[in-house]
Nucleic acid binder design. Structure first.
Lengths: 153, 153
DNA sequence: TGACAATCGTTGCCTAGGCACCTATATTCC
DNA sequence: GGAATATAGGTGCCTAGGCAACGATTGTCA
């Protein structure tokens, strides 16, 4: 699950040329992390993208397609098709909402509910792997720097 | 130029829910940075992906399609078409290489050479914007943490 | 109330990367 | 030298997201 944007801003030959640009470095870290996550999720036949949706619903951060789109910056058309796929897999369910007939509520099926913890565990495995050797302070500092970048947006 | 993978690992409603996961945070930072870069490059009608290729060639980090693919983790088929596009735009040129007829050398055209500094400047603008308020030490530390993540891969 | 705007989900079309496969050429190694 | 292997680039097919447009529904407000 790797696009040129993942490796964006030039990833010189892996670990040959030193990363000179923070932007490059961030992109490169992201691609590595995501590839690792995809590999970790492969046994479940779930893509990162699908996990995102399932997790967002599982965590109660969204209960409709529109909510999902807002929450994770996703195209509504793409989301329709994404939900189709997850429904076909039997992990997610669309429910009519009586008080607003434009919207359909989303909820995990029993199967989806059963699967999700395994997906979340896979994510934790990947995260822990990449953070090997980081102290709690370093993780906090890292988060702080990333959040400051976001705030600068 | 934003995919769900960009926002991967759940980006809760922007700046509403605190980012709890480093993975999320990295993905979110990347998407913001890339969106900003795309916006900055828009006047030149160049995508981030195209800039990556141009920059890699301009910096002498690759001079063939295969070199580009290795350097930035890109699919050969996609690269063929990418180069097609850049050639159509008159920014890049394919040249036969006498000593290896499998390969075609790549080089920027005059137009490409003229354009590239503007693209590089756009990237600097974006990077500087996101690093506002960072001390040199902080940038170094940030790079260090990212590189340690890569080393943990 | 009734016109207008906003929202929700969907669809069709376009773009673009991933993968499998192919041909041509180079390299390796017996 | 010659067969096997590797590499370079290209093509077709598939998937999937972005965008524009649409119908249905709901909200706004004059």
């Amino acid at each position: 699950m790797t696009s040129i944007f993942d490796s964006a801003l030039l990833n010189p030959a892996p670990s040959v040329v030193p990363q000179r640009s923070l932007l490059r470095l961030i992109s490169r870290v992201r691609i590595e992390v995501m590839d690792a996550l995809d590999a970790e999720l492969a046994p479940f036949e779930i893509s990162s993208a699908q996990m995102i949706v399932l997790a967002t619903v599982a965590n109660g951060e969204a209960d409709s397609a529109a909510g999902l789109c807002k929450g994770i910056s996703y195209d509504p058309g793409a989301m329709t098709r994404m939900i189709d796929r997850l429904e076909q897999k039997g992990l997610l369910r669309r429910l009519p909402r009586p008080d607003d007939r434009r919207t359909t509520n989303l909820e995990l099926t029993e199967e989806g509910t059963a699967l999700y913890p395994k997906l979340a565990a896979a994510k934790e495995v990947v995260q822990a792997r990449f953070l090997r050797g980081f102290s709690a302070d370093e993780v906090r500092m890292f988060e702080g720097l990333l959040n400051r970048m976001l705030a600068n947006r």
